[in-house]
Design a protein around this nucleic acid. Sequence first.
DNA 1: TCAAGTTATATTGTCGACAATTTTTATTTA
DNA 2: TAAATAAAAATTGTCGACAATATAACTTGA
Lengths: 227, 227
Amino acid sequence: MSNLVSVKFSTLSEDIAQQLSRAIVQGHIPQGSKISEAELAKQYGVSRGPLREAIVKLEGLGLVTRTANVGARVIELNIDDMLETFAMREALEGMAARLASEKMPEEEVTRLYHLLDEHQAYLDANHDEHYVQQGGNDDFHLRIIHASGNTKLIRLLTEELYAVIRMYRHHTADQRRDPRQALREHRAILDAIANHEGDLAELLMRRHISRASQLLKQAMEQCLVKP
Amino acid sequence: MSNLVSVKFSTLSEDIAQQLSRAIVQGHIPQGSKISEAELAKQYGVSRGPLREAIVKLEGLGLVTRTANVGARVIELNIDDMLETFAMREALEGMAARLASEKMPEEEVTRLYHLLDEHQAYLDANHDEHYVQQGGNDDFHLRIIHASGNTKLIRLLTEELYAVIRMYRHHTADQRRDPRQALREHRAILDAIANHEGDLAELLMRRHISRASQLLKQAMEQCLVKP
DNA sequence: TCAAGTTATATTGTCGACAATTTTTATTTA
DNA sequence: TAAATAAAAATTGTCGACAATATAACTTGA
């Protein structure tokens, strides 16, 4: 069962880490399941060395937990951890919005308004259907994060936090959110950024994420009825 | 040249990672220097396997940068990166202070007031000398971070960010800060937490860190005159 | 003398095998 | 039968050796 296209990285370890990350985020490797080094090594056709390096990286990304002499397990999603992650996201993306208000160039602001217009058109055409996961809702947030210009902040949010955030989304299918409400909030945030109102942009972004967190919490409470 | 006490962890890799981390933060391994796997392996008396794992972990902590087929280098401290790190710290510790306002138990508030009293007494007795690095100024911040109750936030701040923050302090000896001013700010923050004023606690903590950032920036500008 | 190309050296990446530890299975005993 | 103990199997941790790549040293030609 070869896993999708194996985009050749310069080193096996990076390649494996990338593939494993996707497999976990998309649920191909289920939550809480054990990561067997021997098994995965055979499956990916590599030795245990690079595989172990990949696992150590995944541990750094917070996708697996490792205990000495026992091995690695995929993290288990639960509401409390999700709320913790979103609290961090609220703080960090709020800061990103503030910084973006100072640094985002005019052209990018214009492009983002266009992006929101496209979202609007999509909703009008598809009877308020959610946009497709990838590149839709996320895109707006990622663009603002990048506009912050803070490379460490960008790395942490896009490479670490968003991995587990996407994982939550994948595992609670529909987050039952009103897309038009989200779009309105996006527009308000962008307005604040366009006007260089850092305080307001941060406030609005934090509220926006806080609301998303509450909605995701409700969705999880309904979805994950404990067996 | 064996490096301090080698506290035996359950696995060599963890042990080495810990020792390397300390060596880098304390400057025993200088900034920008290359990490030679063979050399370090011989020095610590282990094989290259566990050492590589340790290096991968350090990369995750942001203490070294790795490039494929070339190796790892200790990060180089500069003002821009420091400002980026402190911007993240501002956002995250601000959130920690807010959460602490809701969750910190009464007894811990009392203990923290005692801690500040001790700091005050220390300053009175030692003619405004800075407290010793370890456990002094940091302690207050760490206690608030822990009081947030957000385990992910705690891990990120204490294990990742504070590693490089301590590195900055180590490499710019004296940060030329008025300790009494810092103490006053600490007290104001604690007051807000004691009164469960989350908004205020966050605001004060962010200002406090922002000021520290500015001062450290000035110190670095004087210290690091480019050759 | 300098530049480009070539060889040699050193360093990292990968592999398979062995040691140490944990988990499972089997056995014994109350 | 159940708990405790002991043996066996499986899994992780560690090691040394080889392959692939990058860096250094050297040669050659203009």
